[in-house]
Design a protein around this nucleic acid. Structure first.
Lengths: 227, 227
DNA sequence: AACCGCTTGTGAACGCAGGAACAAAGTCGC
DNA sequence: GCGACTTTGTTCCTGCGTTCACAAGCGGTT
């Protein structure tokens, strides 16, 4: 039973759950640290403990990449790291633009962790005259007017919005129109984007609110709790 | 300090799902904007569109607060806003400390949105000599040594970690030992905390990684796509 | 006063993520 | 060379979150 005539053989290119992708990124970081520490192999239990997840769930996550461990031994650190890197596409460099160079934008532009994960900022933009010309992380802040020009020239596919809420939607529209396919939004508004453009929202105050709520809920356990 | 005479009246003190709490915070923001715009009532469809969720899901979320809408009309903007505010505990002021005053820490300390949500920073801490004494958002940066002292004096229950990854765990330990019950961690490490202390992690590079992955996955749709 | 349309609130079904348990497989020790 | 132990990869199951669909209720209109 030879399945000839099927040229593109991808182990398991089917959809990987989003939650799994997020955890893979965490595993990747832990594996890199282990590799730097000189470890050659690691078992799912230890890796799961370091990542803060359940061992069985970790193995299920890894199963999406096909078999990549040795039974009775564990996972080879360097091999698994490279496998995850390949799946997440860390090798390929992705051009990103960042709009809104306030404190948060500066923090992102300065963060060295992005570069090692395949993300390269190719443009920093701000509307304030005072910000323009400032150098952050090796780049010069440019006026917002040049946004479309830079996106087109660099073929940037990712845009990050760290502007005030009032202008976030217009920035989103311009990014989408210029050809950006993925947008990460830190402004506290829900953005609308055309079909084919994926918007992901990170709301810092919501995170704090949820944290505070579960904290206070813990103090009021239940109505009839026997101590 | 006895908490007598504090009738904690919650219509339905049952457990509210965490995902619902996160959305309630979003609804609250939208409702505030509507109130400022002079709107008196709003239907679930419009509110859901503004928040970017499903109308039925929104109604189910609100059902956790008990009946608070008028059939055939919708929800009264001001009433619903106040109801959500009460449940989330926005009125009460919560003392927070922030450790690690880099770019990200400065952004959080400066962000005015927290104050209106019931969060008040009562201490900013950093280990770098150069940062100490700097004034941000009305507070002065203090040396890390004073952390325990301030937490005890202010009864702060929330700690935010924006330090480098290497020292995040030790900061977490100190916060927990000093009495902090909830910790929001921005450092790219998985923190271990004692029982009774809730740790929530926000990983900016993971967010970007997931965004990029779903973007590239979209370009390779499937094997037999009928267009 | 009665009808009609609109909207809420709730019940049920679907799909998905998470956790536990088990069989397969490979290695180490004897 | 063989047995036993260790660990992976998978399968089943339980619970949660989300979505769809419908009955109940209120306001406006005639």
């Amino acid at each position: 039973m030879t399945a000839c005539g099927e040229p593109v053989i991808q182990p398991r290119p089917r959809t990987i759950p989003e939650a799994t992708v997020a955890r893979l990124a965490v595993y990747l970081r832990v594996l890199s640290a282990l590799a730097d520490a000189g470890r050659s192999t690691v078992a799912s239990g230890e890796l799961a403990a370091a990542a803060g997840v359940n061992p069985a769930g970790l193995r299920k996550d890894l199963s999406h990449l096909g078999p990549c461990g040795v039974r009775g031994v564990g996972y080879e650190v360097a091999t698994l790291r490279d496998r995850i890197s390949g799946v997440l596409g860390v090798e390929r460099s992705r051009a990103c633009v960042l709009v809104g160079i306030g404190n948060l934008g500066s923090a992102l532009a300065d963060y060295a962790g992005f570069g090692s994960r395949g993300f390269e900022f190719v443009g920093l933009f701000d509307a304030a005259e005072a910000r323009i010309g400032q150098r952050i992380g090796g780049l010069t802040v440019r006026p917002t007017e040049e946004l479309e020009e830079v996106v087109t020239a660099t073929q940037a596919s990712i845009g990050v919005i760290t502007t005030p809420a009032e202008v976030a939607q217009s920035v989103c529209d311009r990014l989408a129109a210029a050809g950006v396919r993925s947008i990460l939004n830190f402004a506290p508004v829900t953005l609308a984007a055309p079909e084919g453009v994926d918007v992901r929202k990170v709301d810092l105050s919501v995170e704090l609110q949820v944290l505070a709520f579960v904290g206070q809920q813990r103090l009021v356990p239940a109505v009839g709790e026997p101590a």
